[in-house]
């Protein structure tokens, strides 16, 4: 029972961190049809800025998060403007190469600036130590990660399902040309949603820093994981991404607890099975 509970909470926390980071990727991939392997790099940049702000500048956790999210979005604007915009609508091979190139550059630069060591983001006292749930206790930062995931999912649902911007976003995902001719300024929709996507990646990178530690190879190590989540869930689908994160998080964590010597074998086996059965993702729409 103890094992089941700890596997369950770990899986939930891991899945939620995955969700916060990759949901932006899912939305932008549904919107702009770009196979983006550089998304993890933005999560890593967020983590680095937060770590720097907390350690070197002495800011608190909340301020560090805000600074990191804003800083990452700032960094992403020229990258989006000069590099990404050229590969919208290009063949997949081109998109893969361009985004791998960006990832490699970010890794190299991060290592040059911050060194190859693992970076920590000091947690506030509130998030340290266990929280007593009455009959079991759970690490506070995991609870925080789960709460963040729930809040992000809820906020995104509200944004996309209930606001005027959400209507435009959904229209652009379905048919960008038609939405444009009906007066939706798709360029602004694109710009806002990529900024939100990058910001969420940075946020997820900071919140999940205890589970996915920040180091230069972060972007390469989890690059595939984020892409897999989007593919399994279906690009552009928020419930799909949530489902994919929970399922893959559960499989990965259970595998690590019960049969650690198999590594990520079951994770990738599950990915192959799901993608073979649902080529458009669990909840993705047919194209």
């Amino acid at each position: 029972m103890q094992t089941v509970f700890s596997v369950g909470t770990d899986a939930l926390a891991y899945g939620m961190v995955l969700f916060v980071i990759s949901i932006g990727l899912s939305v932008t991939m549904g919107l702009m049809r770009v196979v983006n392997l550089a998304h993890g790099a933005f999560a890593m940049i967020g983590g680095y800025i937060a770590s720097y702000a907390a350690h070197m500048l002495g800011f608190g956790y909340a301020v560090a998060i805000l600074l990191a999210v804003a800083g990452t979005i700032l960094i992403s604007i020229p990258i989006e403007r000069f590099l990404f915009r050229r590969i919208y609508g290009a063949p997949e091979l081109t998109q893969v190469l361009m985004t791998i190139g960006i990832t490699f550059c970010v890794i190299g630069i991060a290592n040059y600036v911050f060194g190859p060591t693992l970076k920590t983001i000091p947690l506030p006292d509130m998030l340290r130590g266990p929280v007593d749930l009455g009959y079991r206790s759970i690490a506070a930062h995991k609870l925080f990660a789960i709460a963040c995931g729930v809040v992000v999912a809820g906020a995104l649902w509200f944004l996309i399902d209930r606001t005027a911007f959400g209507v435009k976003l959904r229209a652009s995902v379905d048919n960008a040309a038609m939405a444009g001719s009906l007066g939706v300024r798709t360029r602004i929709v694109y710009a806002v949603s990529s900024a939100v996507a990058v910001g969420l990646a940075a946020f997820g990178g900071i919140v999940g820093a205890e589970l996915l530690p920040i180091e230069p190879y972060y972007a390469l190590r989890y690059m595939v994981t984020f892409l897999v989540v989007v593919s399994v869930g279906g690009a552009g689908s928020i419930p799909g991404a949530l489902l994919a994160c929970l399922v893959l998080g559960a499989i990965d964590t259970t595998g690590r607890y019960l049969v650690p010597e198999y590594g990520e074998f079951f994770f990738y086996l599950a990915v192959i099975t799901i993608v073979c059965l649902f080529p458009n993702g669990l909840l993705g729409r047919k194209r």
Binding site: L227, V230, S231, V232, I272, V275, C276
Partner: peptide, 13 residues
């Protein structure tokens, strides 16, 4: 079995 993104992810897996 897949095309596009799915094919790429399958190759990685």
């Amino acid at each position: 079995r897949g095309h596009g993104l799915a094919q790429l992810v399958l190759s990685i897996a």
